[in-house]
Measured scan of single mutants.
Amino acid sequence: VIAMPSVRKYAREKGVDIRLVQGTGKNGRVLKEDIDAFLAGGA
């Protein structure tokens, strides 16, 4: 999974398994917005 360390930390704090999140950034990078969208109700 491609993600910046700050995004990985954010996901950990929110209790999200970053491997389950679909990245929308360049080359499938997971963004902070992707974590929020995942929490809001889905992949």
Rank of each mutant, 00 (worst) to 15 (best):
V1P: 11
V1S: 08
V1Y: 06
V1G: 07
I2D: 11
A3H: 06
A3S: 07
A3Q: 06
A3W: 02
A3F: 02
M4P: 10
P5K: 12
P5N: 12
S6T: 08
S6Y: 08
V7S: 03
V7H: 02
V7K: 02
V7I: 09
R8I: 15
R8Q: 12
K9F: 08
K9L: 09
K9M: 10
K9E: 15
K9G: 06
Y10D: 06
Y10H: 10
Y10P: 04
A11D: 01
A11V: 01
R12C: 09
R12L: 15
E13F: 09
E13P: 00
E13Q: 13
E13S: 12
E13D: 14
K14I: 06
K14G: 03
K14H: 14
K14F: 07
K14W: 07
K14A: 08
G15L: 06
G15P: 00
V16I: 10
V16R: 00
V16E: 00
V16M: 03
V16K: 01
D17A: 05
D17R: 05
D17K: 04
D17T: 04
D17S: 05
I18S: 01
I18Q: 01
I18K: 01
I18M: 06
R19K: 11
R19Q: 10
R19Y: 09
R19V: 07
L20S: 09
L20K: 11
L20N: 09
L20Y: 11
L20W: 09
L20T: 07
V21Y: 00
V21D: 00
V21Q: 01
V21C: 08
V21T: 03
Q22W: 09
Q22S: 13
Q22I: 13
Q22N: 11
Q22P: 12
Q22K: 15
G23Y: 02
G23E: 02
G23L: 02
G23K: 02
G23Q: 03
G23I: 02
T24Q: 05
T24F: 03
T24Y: 03
G25Q: 03
G25F: 01
G25D: 03
K26L: 13
K26G: 09
K26T: 12
N27M: 10
N27H: 13
N27E: 10
N27A: 09
N27V: 05
N27D: 14
G28H: 07
G28A: 06
R29Q: 15
R29N: 09
R29K: 09
R29L: 12
V30E: 00
V30D: 00
V30P: 02
V30M: 03
L31T: 13
L31V: 10
L31D: 05
L31S: 09
K32H: 10
K32M: 13
K32D: 04
K32A: 07
E33S: 14
E33I: 11
D34Q: 01
D34C: 01
D34H: 01
D34S: 01
D34I: 00
D34K: 00
I35G: 00
I35W: 00
I35P: 00
I35K: 00
I35Y: 00
I35N: 00
I35H: 00
D36M: 05
D36Q: 04
D36V: 05
D36G: 02
D36N: 06
A37G: 08
A37D: 11
A37Y: 11
A37Q: 11
F38Q: 04
L39A: 07
L39V: 10
L39D: 05
L39G: 04
A40I: 12
G41I: 13
G42Q: 15
G42W: 11
G42F: 13
A43S: 14
A43G: 15
A43I: 13
A43N: 14
